[in-house]
Design a protein around this nucleic acid. Structure first.
Length: 525
RNA sequence: GGGCCCGUAGCUCAGUUGGUCAGAGCGAGCCGCUCAUAACGGUUUGGUCGCAGGUUCAAGUCCUGCCGGGCCUACCA
């Protein structure tokens, strides 16, 4: 709709899971987007939440001797706790157990039904409770214990026959392909887009969208023996938030979403089923779905059975919040799988943050504090030595914005750090400590250029590291209203009093031994 | 079986539509500086651009085959 609005969502997380780096990563990417867009003057809506329905939850609640709602109230808390722990800034945290969500699901269902794209049939097949999915017989195999399991997931399956409502997905193949073609940005990255198109071209089968084997979910209108398929329920949260079906609701202005951020495992639900549901109901599909990759841990796949899951909160505790956020966004080209290595984490923390950025701030600010009376020094005439640095800093906003619009977070950070690198080189080349004796006015001017450059890169780094950058901006005496991108070109005013500088990015301190790390720590693995 | 992606310096990766494309960062060695969080800067580090062919005046950059890694999907059953 209005290009001044920006609506971004995380998937809603299944409460039966324990939060891990996958959840944290998806939400972090959204948080960076949301913060950037807010700073860039957009009217942002950033939504995250939890998916609380389904047979697994029903069973888990029963096992715990609890009512499902009470149970989900409890287990969803760990996801809500992640918000402050990771510094996320969602505008709302939605839960599928909210009454308004039931209303939205049922309204969407009725629309699709009225359009003739939902019909009652019968489903028979091998069903896995754990996977919440039906499998073709060929997708299962009988193990030595005589139990049949899904080949892909290893989950036990049972033969189930039940009446079921179906979504007429088979009728949407051509319209979906047309939609993909007309909206080349809809699926990202490109490789995922290729996969989805290839999948849809391979033919689509009607989709079972209701279950009668359990109760914990949204009842099908006028046929409460049926509970809606979890994905029909879950995906709808994105429009529930906007007030659906009330298209006069205050939040409806945010729809269609600008970006659904998802992990690569749930691309299909978001790029095939979801736009088909919406188009069937006469609702505009979202503008873009970005499927990011997975993390491995020191080169190994992460799995619960291996016990090598990564607890992001523990990372924050050891390395710091902004350091962790920076690493996750910087280390890997967004969209690719990434490998978490402690050595790399420490490397980033020390080289990029402490040495390059933190030390730049510290060295410049301490010269200013000692030589310029603790105030922003006087700007003098610009020379050819100053212009390349200042020009690059000035151009960085547009460059970073371009990267952010493509979710190229690592490239956005690279762009910022190029300026930081140039600034460090500029310090050495200009040697303000030498100028102190020969040309104090020039010295002041050089320091002004540096402070101005630090201000700009720090403004741009805010979405990634909100806490640390706020502290640096405090040290630059940049007022709150000077921290949005609207103020990007508002230069530092000479004479402004500055507080005493303080280090913001410490180097990593090994809590164990003071012994230096072995030099060739990672030769082979 | 079909499809998609990838394999470039020790490590992580950039390399548009073929012709300074053989690069960056990190690590390591050497040198310099001293404002700073022993931080910063300069410089070096000599990679058959997975392998083998082909197209072209010219190919990491296009084509074919092969090897290796990842992913989507199908089926044999």
């Amino acid at each position: 709709m209005s290009d001044n609005r920006f609506y971004i969502t995380t998937p809603i997380y299944y409460v039966n899971d324990v939060p891990h780096i996958g959840h944290a990563y998806t939400t972090l990417a959204c948080d960076v987007m949301a913060r950037f867009m807010r700073l860039d003057g957009k009217d942002v809506r950033f939504l995250t939440g939890t998916d609380e329905h389904g047979q697994k939850v029903e069973q888990a609640a029963a096992n715990a001797g609890m009512d499902p709602k009470a149970f989900t109230d409890k287990v969803s808390q760990s996801f809500r706790d992640l918000v402050p722990a990771m510094g996320y800034s969602p505008d709302n945290f939605i839960r599928t157990t909210e009454p308004r969500h039931y209303a939205a699901c049922q309204a969407l269902w009725n629309k699709v039904l009225a359009a003739g794209d939902i019909y009652l049939g019968k489903y028979a097949g091998w069903y896995s409770v754990r996977d919440e999915a039906f499998y073709a017989e060929s997708e299962t195999e009988v193990g030595p214990d005589n139990k049949r399991r899904a080949t892909a997931s290893g989950a036990e399956v049972a033969w189930v026959e039940e009446p079921s409502y179906f979504f007429r997905l088979s009728a949407w193949q051509d319209r979906l392909l047309k939609f993909y073609e007309d909206n080349p940005r809809f699926i990202a990255p490109q490789s995922r887009r290729n996969e989805v198109i290839s999948f849809v071209k391979g033919g689509l089968q009607d989709l079972s969208v209701s279950r009668t084997t359990f109760k914990w979910g949204v009842p099908v209108p006028n046929d409460p023996a049926h509970i809606m398929y979890v994905w029909f329920d879950a995906l709808t949260n994105y429009i529930t938030e906007c007030g659906y079906p009330d298209e006069t609701a205050p939040n409806w202005k945010y729809w269609p979403a600008d970006l659904h951020m998802v992990g690569k495992d749930i691309v299909r639900f978001h790029t095939v089923y979801w736009p088909a549901f919406l188009m069937a109901a006469g609702v505009a599909p979202p503008k873009r779905v970005y499927a990011h990759g997975w993390w491995t841990n020191e080169g190994q796949k992460i799995s619960k059975s291996l016990g090598n899951t990564i607890d992001t909160v523990a990372l924050v505790k050891e390395f710091g919040l902004d350091q962790t956020r920076y690493f996750l966004m910087r280390e890997v080209p967004f969209g690719n799988d990434g490998d978490f290595r402690r050595a790399a984490m420490v490397q980033r923390m020390d080289s990029d943050l402490a040495n390059a950025y933190g030390n730049l701030c510290q060295r410049v600010l301490s010269i200013v504090a000692k030589n310029c009376g603790g105030a922003v020094p006087a700007k003098g005439p610009l020379t050819d030595a100053d212009r390349p640095l200042l020009d690059k800093a000035r151009g960085a906003l547009a460059a970073v914005r371009e990267k952010i619009n493509e979710q190229a977070f690592n490239e956005a950070l690279t762009t910022i750090w190029e300026v930081i690198g140039d600034a460090n080189r500029y310090v050495d080349a200009q040697a303000p400590w030498a100028l102190a004796k020969t040309d104090p006015a020039r010295r002041d001017h050089v320091l002004w250029v540096l402070i101005e450059t630090i201000r700009r890169v720090t403004l741009l780094a805010q979405p990634f590291m909100p806490g640390s950058t706020a502290r640096i901006l405090d040290q630059l005496a940049v007022p709150a209203e000077g921290r949005s991108f609207a103020a990007f070109d508002r230069e530092m005013a000479s004479g402004t009093a500055l507080p005493a500088p303080q280090g913001v990015f410490p180097r990593y301190v090994d809590p164990a031994a003071p012994a230096p790390a072995p030099k060739q720590a990672r030769k082979k693995a």
